[in-house]
């Protein structure tokens, strides 16, 4: 911590603002109640008495996306549901995280071959931060996935200057249709366009100095 350490009385701690915010954020990661299929039962079991997700600050399951930080996509997503998943994701406030729970959301799972109606992986619809494989994953596995999300939060550096701009559109965007002004047959040019777009929106969103 440098020179400030130990210069104050007891019960004072010194930290950076960024670390303090990240600490608060990672220890109150509110997931959205978003059970789709079988994995939802394991998600409920994770939240219930034995596994008790609340120990890690993630026990407050919110019924509305507007109060949630974390979307646990628990179960098979099909084409009829895909647009809803996307809409719910868009409704969540930033910063938002997505756990793809179970084989179906990771890549179609057992429904890959004959599932005419199953989306072959939820990353075709929303960007995914952590994949938790298994059919269904055990609650321990989901807790592990939650901790990886917490690691990710711990490493966030959005207050520091000169950090690379996060691409707002997922890196694996080939599958979600882009608006024409951001799309280009050449992937490098497309990336440039998207970065320019991202920079512009970030500048517009920044609070004015006066």
């Amino acid at each position: 911590m440098g020179w400030v350490e130990g210069r104050f009385e007891e019960n004072f701690i010194t930290t950076t603002l960024e670390q303090a915010i990240n600490w608060a954020r990672e220890s109150s990661m509110w997931p959205m109640t978003f059970g789709l299929a079988c994995c939802a039962i394991e998600m409920m079991a994770t939240g219930a008495s034995r596994y008790d997700m609340d120990r890690f600050g993630a026990g407050a399951f919110r019924a509305t996306p507007r109060q949630a930080d974390l979307m646990i996509v628990a179960g098979t997503v099909n084409y009829k549901m895909a647009s809803r998943v996307r809409r719910l994701y868009n409704q969540m406030p930033d910063p938002k995280f997505v756990i793809a729970m179970g084989a179906c959301t990771c890549g179609g799972g057992p429904y890959y071959k004959y599932g005419y109606n199953v989306v072959k992986g939820v990353d075709l619809v929303v960007p995914v931060d952590v994949y938790v494989p298994g059919c269904p994953p055990r609650p321990e596995a989901l807790l592990e996935g939650l901790m990886r999300i917490q690691d990710k939060v711990k490493g966030m550096r959005y207050l520091t200057k000169n950090q690379p701009i996060e691409v707002p559109i997922p890196a694996r965007t080939g599958y979600v249709q882009l608006p024409p002004e951001l799309d280009d047959p050449n992937p490098l040019k497309a990336m440039e366009k998207q970065l320019a777009f991202a920079k512009k929106t970030k500048e517009e969103a920044a609070p004015s100095k006066a």
Binding site: T76, P110, G115, N117
Partner: peptide, 26 residues
């Protein structure tokens, strides 16, 4: 309905009964 339609009947007519047992679980 249909937000969880996972094509189980189509799968059932493409795999053997033993292979279909795991789909009945789901």
């Amino acid at each position: 309905l249909g937000y969880l339609h996972r094509c189980a009947e189509k799968i059932g007519e493409n795999v053997t009964p033993i292979q279909f047992i795991p789909y009945t679980d789901r």
